[in-house]
Nucleic acid binder design. Structure first.
Lengths: 226, 226
DNA sequence: AATGTAAGGATTGTTGAACGATTTGATAAG
DNA sequence: CTTATCAAATCGTTCAACAATCCTTACATT
């Protein structure tokens, strides 16, 4: 039995939350649409439409908007409505700066933790298997999971949250790209990075990661500057 | 004339926002009370009281609650109300983990930027002057400004925001302490850190910062475990 | 005395309608 | 082509109401 409200790997106690509020439920639906490409960047989210479709009141919907705006997935323009966020090239660079910081620090302090390494191996294997079978969307999912796990080497719940948000923002751009050419170039390097971490060669891992992220940033910048 | 909506040092365009929504206004008032100790951790924020005092509707107040909850200054317990966040020792450690990551990365990539160094000098001088005159609250303000400036060496608006939030959370604990014994031990080390950055000795700066943060963490942990 | 149960009141969660304020878009005038 | 004007649409905010949940108190049980 997994007790809600119990302590976890970080030693913090989570607030009891078996069921969530209606606003969080609505936010979850919209979040999924945004991060999975159902709602494209720049789209306007009209209150009337969504209150009718989700069958929630305007106030509740606006609370959901507020949640997603703080996650930077939506953009709230006063008196003008809510839009799916459009990432500028500067945003992409900023996000990659965040990734360099988080993942760089993670790799540097990596210490061959068996549990973390097992999880990382699983993510890399899943990605490779999905790639072999041509399931490129699943490759993307596993790739993001791999990097989220890298971030978690920092051993901080807040850093995990920052990384999750950064990756969620990046998904806004991912949908403008072919998932194959987005993830394929980086698959072997995930494996290589894992190997370096397994043998404790953190400095080499850090260097590999740096070039990795620089290249990924260039790829995305090219995609979002037409 | 500083045009709102114009581009800034980060090259991003800020959304036009001359006036803010009522919810943000209410959130600003509550944020100030929380970060400046007017509302102590654990306090309950009843809707009836605050709607009467702030003269805003319940819905607007609840939106303000939502904003501050996402900043981790308030804690929203479903059906039970909103409380000023109480930091556990695990929270404090987690926040210091974030600071180690952010400030560590910042110091490592520091490159003697004249503008940044000028700002840092200003913060250190202000802190020293305030200390000499016994204005320990102002010392605290300048100290936090110094570390926020350190974080900004990362050159990322998002990292700046993360740091601002981490420091805001720490203020929740600061109010349980004597501001003098909280900041006095670290004043000379701020100066020392600045000197190292001015001469480009980043590795030494990084080491100094590490011990600095470890000690500060211990100090706060001792304060919040009675 | 300690524990468990059952009203009842108090507070929160959510809704729907209302109205002023702002933006938008079309139209007309210069 | 630009500017001005005006109506429609949409947003921002408030209010009142009711449902759902929690908390307190009182009472009963062991």
């Amino acid at each position: 039995m997994s007790e809600p409200g119990s302590s976890d790997a970080y030693g913090e106690t989570r607030p009891f939350r078996v069921r969530s509020s209606t606003a969080e439920w609505a936010a979850a639906i919209l979040r999924q649409r945004v991060t999975q490409g159902g709602l494209l960047p720049g789209s306007r989210l009209a209150e009337d439409e969504l209150t009718a479709e989700l069958e929630v009141s305007r106030n509740t919907l606006r609370e959901a908007f507020s949640l997603l705006s703080q996650e930077r997935l939506l953009e709230h323009r006063l008196n003008r409505g809510v839009y799916v966020r459009v990432l500028s090239p500067a945003d992409v660079s900023d996000i990659y700066q965040v990734r360099r910081m988080i993942e760089g620090a993670a790799v540097r302090r990596s210490y061959k933790d068996p549990i973390s390494l097992t999880a990382l191996r699983g993510a890399v294997s899943d990605a490779e298997k999905a790639a072999a079978e041509g399931r490129w969307l699943d490759v993307g999912t596993a790739d993001l999971r791999f990097h989220q796990l890298i971030a978690s080497l920092n051993g901080s719940r807040r850093v995990d949250a920052m990384m999750a948000q950064a990756l969620a923002e990046l998904r806004l751009v991912f949908h403008a790209m072919n998932p194959r050419e987005l993830h394929a170039p980086f698959l072997p390097r995930n494996r290589e990075l894992l190997t370096l971490l397994e043998s404790g060669r953190n400095a080499e891992a850090e260097a590999l990661l740096a070039t990795y992220l620089d290249e990924a940033e260039r790829l995305l910048l090219a995609a979002c500057t037409p």
